[in-house]
Design a protein around this nucleic acid. Structure first.
Lengths: 165, 165
DNA sequence: GTGGGTTTGTTTCAGCTGAAACGATCAAGT
DNA sequence: ACTTGATCGTTTCAGCTGAAACAAACCCAC
C-alpha cells in the first residue's frame, strides 16, 4: 500500500500490517542525522587544528563565556555528565589551558578559569566556530533562521516534558 | 559589549578581544542538544520495553521498511558504521529477530530479513515511535512542521558540502 | 560537637564506538 | 590460471561514556 493511501471510509483494517515507518522521513531520525553531521564536521575542524575534544571545547567555551565557574556549573550549563566534565577539566589543566583555584568557602568545589594560553586558543576557535555556523546558515534567510530557532525551542520544551512527565 | 552592538563605523578594533561565543545561542550546539535529548528519550522508551539498542532499532527499522537488504546497504541507508551494523546484526540474529541468508551470486555479503518474531517486535515499536514523534510535534502547526523539514534538508545539504568540499 | 544525610568531584568498571588490520570473496587484466 | 586491487564483513584494539561506588567536604538538627 502506498504511503498516504486510505482505506475506504468506514472500513477498519484490523488485520492489516502496520504501515512501515519511513526512517528518512521520521523527525527524530532526521534531527539526529543532521546534528551528528554538524557536530562532527565542526569537531573535526578544531580537533585537527588544536587537539581538542568535544567535551574539552565545551569546557573552554563555557569558561570563555562566563569567566570563572565550578565544574558543577559547567556541567549544568553545557549539559555534560559530571564525569565527562571531570576528565575534560583534568586534560585541560594538564595542558595548562585552565587553572583550578580553591574555594576557601567550600573546599569540595574549585573555581576554574582559562589561563592566558587557554584564552588564546579559545579566541582562535571562536571565529572558526562562528565561520562554520555562518557558512552553515548561508542559504537560510533571516526569517528562516529565526524560525529554526523558534522551532528548536518548541521541540526542546516539548521533549523535556515528555521525558519527565 | 552587548550582543549585536556595533563599533562606530570606520573604526577597526584590532586589539579588542573577540566577542565571547554564547553557547546556548549557537546553532550547532542547540541542534545537538535537541537531537540528543530526542534520540535518548525515544531510545529509553523502546530500550526499557524490548531491550533494543539504538543501532539494533535502526537495523530493524531499515529491514522493516525495505524487506531484504545486505549489511552494507543497511549501513548506507541508516548512516551507521559497518562495525556498528555488524554487531547489531549479530545481536539480532542471536535473538532470532533477523535471519541471514547467503547470496550465491556474491558470497561476501548476505541477505538479511526480519523473522516473524522480528516483524512482531518491529510492528510493536513502530506505533510507539510514531506516537512519540506525534507527541513531540504537538504544538507545531502543519506549516511549522513542513518548515522544519525544509530547514533540516537545507542544513543537511549545506553541511554535507562543507564536510566534503 | 556529633551523627546522618547531602553535595562535589574522582575513580572504577562495563559497555559502546570507530579506525585499522584482517580473511574471504569478487572482478579485471594479462 | 594467476596476479592485482577492490569490496564485504568481522575482529582487534584503543579511546570514550556514563552508572555506580567512593572520598572529601558540607549542612543541619539534636
Amino acid at each position: 500500500m502506498a504511503s498516504g493511501e486510505r482505506l475506504p471510509s468506514g472500513v477498519l483494517d484490523i488485520h492489516a500490517e502496520a504501515e512501515p515507518l519511513r526512517l528518512e522521513g521520521f523527525l527524530p531520525y532526521r534531527l539526529n542525522m543532521l546534528a551528528t553531521e554538524v557536530s562532527q564536521t565542526l569537531a573535526r575542524a578544531y580537533g585537527r587544528k588544536f587537539g581538542i575534544s568535544i567535551p574539552e571545547w565545551r569546557v573552554l567555551a563555557t569558561l570563555g563565556q562566563f569567566g570563572v565557574m565550578t565544574a558543577r556549573d559547567i556541567g549544568g550549563h553545557s549539559r555534560m555528565h559530571k564525569t565527562t566534565v571531570s576528565r575534560a577539566v583534568a586534560a585541560l589543566e594538564k595542558r595548562r589551558l585552565i587553572v583550578r583555584r580553591a574555594n576557601r568557602a567550600d573546599m569540595r568545589e574549585a573555581f576554574l578559569a582559562l589561563t592566558d594560553a587557554g584564552t588564546t586558543i579559545y579566541q582562535e576557535i571562536v571565529p572558526m566556530a562562528r565561520a562554520f555556523s555562518d557558512s552553515l546558515c548561508e542559504g537560510l534567510s533571516e526569517t528562516e533562521l529565526r524560525q529554526m530557532n523558534v522551532l528548536i525551542d518548541k521541540l526542546a520544551e516539548r521533549v523535556a516534558s515528555l521525558g519527565n512527565g
